[in-house]
Design a protein around this nucleic acid. Structure first.
Lengths: 127, 127
DNA sequence: CGGCATCCTACCCGATACTG
DNA sequence: CAGTATCGGGTAGGATGCCG
């Protein structure tokens, strides 16, 4: 690629957006946060995501080193997902992005769910 | 949508990613930066993007209040794009995202183009 | 419980040609 | 110069069903 134009494949921002720019990945990262979360919990909280897509996204995030998948050979099976340091480092960035959106969103309503309340949902689901 | 699960449509992070999560939008924002840039310059720098797609993305960014399109009724026609305050506020966020990617990218090479060198490309193109 | 396998749809993105 | 118009392919995302 021409250096004087735009080196697409080597641009860090392009790489980052390739890894994170899908429809659900930022949400998944924010929901997991600093906890270990089981697959069923993720599926229950984000029930607008089909299970296939959720699985796909989790696998890609794992391949990009953003989260870790731990499989326990039990019955019934248990799988826990947690963020790596690389994934944890994303949280303040997503927080800024959320603030940016909220600041400029005309439609913002009182009942908006923030990242924080997403985490509260998680706690509820644990029961 | 169920409040106890996940309020997809009202989640600020989802909204932000919907507005910015496309393949090229972050790059466009970073290339324009704090300058007024003509369509032809953008097309020349990001020559991997077809003009149709570039136009589409610019229109969407305009609709989302991230940039402003100024059309001068001259011959030959001139159109200048510049960021709004909303768009300018994205730059530090993208900068963090770029730093994050660079920090964790194993493949990072010396000849990577950063946002800063993107801007240098812009200057070159002005001649 | 936490997946795959399969099929399907929408739409993002690109190539090409044309216009004021 | 800065676009539109049109066509089309690839793929992200979704619905459904089966499995260890």
């Amino acid at each position: 690629m021409n250096r004087e134009k735009f080196a697409y494949s080597s641009c860090p921002l392009v790489k980052a957006m390739t890894a994170l720019g899908s429809k659900w990945k930022p949400i998944i990262v924010c929901v997991i946060r600093d906890k270990k979360v089981r697959f069923g919990q993720l599926a229950a909280i984000m029930d607008v995501i089909s299970r296939k897509v959720l699985t796909d996204q989790l696998r890609e995030l794992e391949a990009d080193g953003i989260l870790i998948r731990e499989e326990f050979k039990e019955l019934p099976p248990r799988v826990e997902y947690s963020l790596t340091q690389k994934g944890l480092d994303l949280l303040p960035i997503f927080s800024m992005l959320e603030d940016w959106e909220t600041k400029y969103d005309q439609q913002s309503e009182v009942d908006d769910l923030s990242m924080h309340s997403l985490q509260e949902s998680l706690v509820v689901e644990k029961n």
